[in-house]
C-alpha cells in the first residue's frame, strides 16, 4: 500500500533530514535547562505564583517552548532542501507544493510533540506528575500545535525569501533567543517588571502559549486562555498563509 503524498514526505523528513547530533542538541538543551535551572533556581526562588515551586513554574514554560524546537527543525529541513535542490526535485515530482508545506508543518508538530513528551519525562522526577484532565491535555497539545504552526510558518516564509544560509540561521537564532527570553517561559511578568518589557513580553505569542500550558498544569483555565488560543490561531493562519504564498513564487535559483 502506498502512503498518501504528505505522509511520504513526512517519513522522508524524519529519515533523511535530521541527524542524531542535531536532535541531541535541540532536545538536550531544554532538558538540560529543566534539570539545571530547575534545581539551582528552586533553591533561590521559594515560590512563583500559582505554580508553587520554581521548577513547577519552569516545566510548563519549557514544554510550551517545544513549539519553537519543532519549528526550528522544520525551518532547517526546508533550508537544507533548498540548499541541496530537494525542493526543486520534489516540486517537479508527484507532489503539490501545498503537500510539501503540509508535510513540513506536520513534521514541526510531530517534533514539537516528541519534545513535549521528552521534557515531561525529564521533569517527572523533579516536578512530579501534574493532574491533567483530558480537556487540559488537549488544550496543551492544541496550543503547542498552533504555536508550532505559527513559528514553523514564519521560518518557512523567511527561508523561502532568504538566499544566504548565514543570514537565515542568524535570523533564526536571534528570533529564537528573543522569543524565548522575552516571554514568560523562564520568569513571570510581575508588577515590578519594566513597562517596556511587559509590552514586548505580551506581544510575544510564546507568552500566551506558556501561560496557557501553565494554567493547564495548575488546573486554572480562564477566559484569558481562550483569548490566547484565538490569538495563536490567528497568528498561525497568517504565517501559514505567508508560507503558502512564498511557495507559489519560489525562486529555484542557487542559494548559499
Amino acid at each position: 500500500m502506498t502512503l498518501p503524498p504528505v505522509l511520504r514526505l513526512v517519513v522522508r523528513n524524519f529519515r533523511a533530514s535530521i541527524d542524531p547530533i542535531t536532535l541531541l542538541v535541540m532536545f538536550g538543551q531544554p532538558a538540560f535547562l529543566i534539570v539545571i535551572l530547575g534545581t539551582m533556581f528552586s533553591q533561590l526562588i521559594p515560590s512563583v505564583g500559582a505554580s508553587g515551586s520554581y521548577i513547577a513554574y519552569l516545566v510548563p514554560g519549557i514544554i510550551a517552548s517545544q513549539m519553537i524546537t519543532g519549528a526550528i527543525l522544520a525551518g532547517r529541513i526546508f533550508w537544507l532542501d533548498r540548499r541541496w535542490s530537494m525542493v526543486e526535485q520534489i516540486f517537479s515530482g508527484p507532489f503539490r507544493r501545498s503537500e510539501y508545506l503540509a508535510a513540513l508543518l506536520l513534521t514541526t508538530l510531530l517534533f514539537a510533540l516528541v519534545g513535549v513528551g521528552l521534557m515531561a519525562l525529564v521533569a517527572l522526577p523533579l516536578a512530579g506528575l501534574p493532574r491533567l484532565s483530558g480537556v487540559e491535555l488537549l488544550v496543551i497539545l492544541g496550543t503547542i500545535a498552533l504555536g508550532a504552526t505559527f513559528f514553523g510558518g514564519l521560518l518557512v516564509a523567511l527561508g523561502a525569501r532568504i538566499r544566504s544560509a548565514n543570514l537565515y540561521f542568524t535570523i533564526q537564532s536571534l528570533l529564537q533567543y528573543f522569543i524565548v527570553f522575552l516571554s514568560t517561559v523562564y520568569y513571570p511578568v510581575t508588577a515590578k517588571t519594566p513597562t517596556i518589557l511587559k509590552v514586548v513580553v505580551y506581544l510575544n505569542p510564546l507568552t500566551y502559549a506558556a501561560n496557557t500550558v501553565r494554567d493547564a498544569f495548575t488546573n486554572s483555565f480562564g477566559p484569558s486562555d481562550l483569548t490566547a488560543g484565538a490569538v495563536l490561531a490567528g497568528l498561525a493562519l497568517i504565517t501559514f498563509t505567508l508560507a503558502a504564498l512564498s511557495f507559489r513564487r519560489l525562486d529555484f535559483g542557487p542559494v548559499q
Binding site: 502506498t2 502512503l3 511520504r8 514526505l9 517519513v11 522522508r12 529519515r15 533523511a16 533530514s17 541527524d19 537544507l80 541541496w84 535542490s85 530537494m86 526543486e88 526535485q89 520534489i90 517537479s92 515530482g93 508527484p94 542557487p254
Partner: peptide, 23 residues
C-alpha cells in the same frame, strides 16, 4: 536537475528513499 540534489543519507538509502517518495 542541473544542480546537485540529495538527501542526507547514504547513497543506497538515497536511492531507496527516493523510490519510496515516488511510491
Amino acid at each position: 536537475l542541473q544542480s546537485e540534489s540529495l538527501d542526507f543519507v547514504s547513497v543506497e538509502e538515497n536511492l531507496r528513499l527516493y523510490a519510496f517518495l515516488w511510491g
